[in-house]
């Protein structure tokens, strides 16, 4: 069985609860058990919030695109947002962060490391990456991304039931 929920929302925080609720409803309607439903909804929320925080939405029509696909025992979440021309550092950092998280068999190890850094004193104002680690650890999802044409950042998370 393959089913997909597609949504497109403006980068406004007031919209995000509805995205989470619709994702939950879609998964429940497709007989996904409660625990993975909650885990995947958390993953969707984290990725949408990241898209709003780090995306560059210059035109009124620029939006966050969300797709949640259930294919047999695999749930794939894909979130796309436009990037600005000067966001190379952000993308490079995201690249390193995702590869680092995925370097551990147990994402708990990444979670421990990131907790240490979050509680550290810092001269750096960029994001801690704790949200991405939560996706891997609590959401049990494998993260990945690429930057597609038109400078669109496409982040995906794959959760196996």
């Amino acid at each position: 069985m393959i089913a997909t929920l597609s949504m497109k929302v403006p980068p406004r925080w007031a919209e995000f609860d509805a995205v989470r609720d619709r994702s939950l409803e879609f998964l429940r309607r497709n007989d996904v058990a409660t625990d993975p439903c909650i885990a995947v909804a958390m993953v969707v929320s984290e990725l949408v919030e990241n898209a709003a925080k780090y995306g560059t939405f210059r035109r009124g029509s620029d939006a966050i695109e969300i797709a949640v696909t259930l294919a047999h025992t695999v749930i794939t979440i894909e979130i796309c947002n436009p990037l600005g021309p000067n966001q190379t550092c952000h993308v490079t950092r995201l690249d390193g962060m995702i590869q680092w998280i995925r370097g551990f068999q147990d994402p708990f190890e990444a979670y421990l490391e990131r907790l240490k850094e979050v509680s550290a004193q810092t001269l750096d104002s960029s994001e801690s990456g704790l949200g991405l680690v939560r996706i891997a650890y609590e959401g049990q999802a494998v993260l990945d991304f690429f930057v597609r044409e038109q400078n669109i950042l496409a982040v995906s998370a794959v959760h196996r039931l």
Binding site: F108, L112, L115, K116, E117, S119, A120, Q121, T122, L123, D124, S126
Partner: peptide, 25 residues
Amino acid sequence: RTLMRNGRISQFAQRVQQLPLVLSR
């Protein structure tokens, strides 16, 4: 160790504080 790379300074005491989390795993 990460000061010159990302500006973060942690304290060894934080590692010790994490021990209950690791031990409970």
